[in-house]
Design a protein around this nucleic acid. Structure first.
Lengths: 119, 119
DNA sequence: TAATGAACATTATGTTCATTA
DNA sequence: TAATGAACATAATGTTCATTA
């Protein structure tokens, strides 16, 4: 076991939740997370998002589809990658989330204890 | 800023608190921390304790004194190292603790948000 | 085994670069 | 600039070894 939860795992859980809600592609999720956490002074690095997504694909949780962003190819032909659950993906994802939930609680326990013990 | 608090910083705060309370030497503090956190599945590695203590000395917060562990040198001549605050040490330590408190709260905020958002 | 310390190895990250229907 | 990805660099750890008044 490590000390705190790994950033990667933390991000993966968010990505899973976002895919559940059909929310967007990598860059978009990155922006959303950055916005959501900016008040905490936390800005997830771009590389971590993509690494996390790649891992989820590797692990057979997600698969990818490519699309053009805009509907008018003349104006906007930027390619984006959307993510979806594979057949066993939803199940795997839930298991993973459950595991990470334990980790989050563990970290909360440790940190709360530290506050109690030292302040 | 990083993601979670670093283990080193976390341990340093505990060491400072322990030195405030005159509790023991490195190995002993290690054992105590391990015992305290065993229920969380967290066992701080030995190297981190010593590294943290060395850093606190480097930073001018603590200084060291060497002693023999037992009072009877025939029975026990194991050398131990005790730590004390330097003149400016207490002040520095309090500042450091204050800083880390902010970090702890930040981490708690992030983790609680994650639980709310994903579960 | 207790106690300290250093050396070594590895992983998780952060940073920068490359590419573009 | 938006979007994706890979490459590179480094810091923070975890693991093992050495030493012992």
């Amino acid at each position: 076991m490590g000390f705190m939860i790994a950033q990667r795992a933390f991000i993966k859980v968010y990505l899973i939740t976002m895919v559940e809600q059909q929310r967007g592609y990598g860059y978009q999720m990155l922006e959303e997370l950055r916005k959501d956490f900016s008040s905490f002074g936390y800005s997830p690095p771009q590389s971590e998002i993509y690494r996390a997504l790649h891992e989820l694909v590797q692990e057979g949780v997600l698969y990818r589809t490519k699309h053009l962003k805009g509907n008018d190819p003349k104006v906007d032909f930027q390619e984006i990658v959307l993510y979806h659950f594979t057949d066993e993906g939803s199940e795997k994802a839930e298991l993973y989330k459950k595991q990470i939930k334990g980790d989050l609680d563990r970290c909360l326990g440790i940190l709360n204890k530290a506050v109690n013990d030292n302040y």
